[in-house]
Computed example of a mutant assay.
Amino acid sequence: GSSSPSVDLTLIHRADCIMSNSAEFSRQVAQGELSEIGVQVITDTAVVEITEDSVRLCSAGADPSAESFEIPADLVLWAAGSRPSSLLPSLQIPLDPNGQVVTDRFMRVAAAEDGVGKLFALGDAAKCGTLTGSETPSTAQAAMQQADYVAWNVRASLQNDKLLPFRYQDLGEMLSLGEDSAAVSSLGLLKVKGSAGSNLRRAIYAARMPTTAQAAKVGLSWATDAAFGVLRKALQPK
């Protein structure tokens, strides 16, 4: 038989925990999955320098010239999050320090007086408050909810009708953790993980497709991938 070479994986994160914006259940499941496959997680640590064969690190907030250490590395993958479109600054509308468009609770851009009510923003590009004053997370489910309110408010503004203040409803979180594992939590009541979580996540994802044809296409793609996965495992040398 053949044996696969061992691989040492290290995850370095600047914050004091991974997935700080995720649900506690999702975070715990992800940490368990990483531990199970042998990934070493180093938190509260910043990257100072990446060389040809190592990564130099220091404690987050520390002076790297006074306190740093190195770990060997053959391959480094960098995940740096996202940022709003570079087009936004050219539009001459109010942006917050992160570059997001500032909106009111009706999703209107806080522009000049003659522009209020004529321009709306939503999704990752917008920093949207809610009726309760809390900020809306930059997630797909939030953007889909915002789209309904913006559609209503655009029509209402054209017809001098009453605008609706945005109300965000947290429906839960779905987190893919590999080919056949996921964490799904909703409303503090539903908590599913592993293979069952993966199947539930896919079912919910397909159900949220705009059309039946798109849902069928997604389902067929997943079924094909699953079939090839079973075949691939069957053909692997013992």
Rank of each mutant, 00 (worst) to 15 (best):
E113P: 04
Q146L: 10
S138R: 08
P89T: 15
R56G: 02
Q159E: 06
A143R: 04
I37T: 08
D104W: 04
L131A: 05
A126V: 05
G115I: 02
S35Y: 06
Q159I: 09
A66G: 04
N153K: 08
I71Q: 11
A147D: 08
D104T: 04
I93N: 07
V76Q: 10
P94M: 10
M107P: 15
I37D: 10
D148G: 12
A79G: 00
S157P: 08
L91M: 11
M107Q: 15
A121F: 14
M174H: 03
V150A: 13
G99W: 07
E173K: 12
A156F: 02
E67L: 08
L75A: 13
Q169G: 12
L95Y: 11
L163C: 03
D170F: 01
A142K: 10
F106L: 05
A121N: 09
N160T: 06
L88N: 00
D161Y: 06
R83K: 09
L87Q: 08
A73S: 14
S54D: 01
P89C: 15
Q146E: 15
G133C: 05
D148T: 06
D161I: 11
T139L: 07
F166P: 09
D148S: 12
L87P: 08
L175M: 14
E33D: 12
V55Q: 15
D161G: 08
N153Q: 10
L87W: 12
V41T: 10
V47L: 01
Q169M: 06
I93A: 00
L158A: 00
L91K: 01
Q145S: 14
A140R: 12
I42H: 07
D148V: 09
F106A: 02
A125H: 15
G38L: 03
E36G: 13
A156G: 01
